[in-house]
Amino acid sequence: MEVLLAIVIGLLYAAGVYLLLRRSIVKLILGIMFFSHATNLLIFVAGGLHKGQPQFASDGLTAVSANPTDPLPQALILTAIVIGFGITAFFLALMYRFYQATGTEDLDELKEGENK
């Protein structure tokens, strides 16, 4: 499973890179979203894969080590998802303004407009 996930993560990153290299600004944002998905998954896999129970502390302070799931990466990813959401929302608004202001979604035209 780890190998399969590693390949999937690689694929997600590849998709992100490919989209980032497009000229359309919409695809740029899609690329960034792929990156954030891939990174979340990367951190998750790096923390170790353990099927089943979520990590809950039992009342009696004991038997915690019976559940090997690591809660720390989960907390990290949770934060990352929220921040990623904030960034995506901001990007979308920015893209909207960008299109309104420039009338294009082609990033290359920014440079060419400069030379005119």
Partner: peptide, 18 residues
Amino acid sequence: AIALLVGGFMTGLVLKAG
């Protein structure tokens, strides 16, 4: 090709991290 280059190294990184 660039994308696969990057993706491939990320895959390697995950395996390495494991």
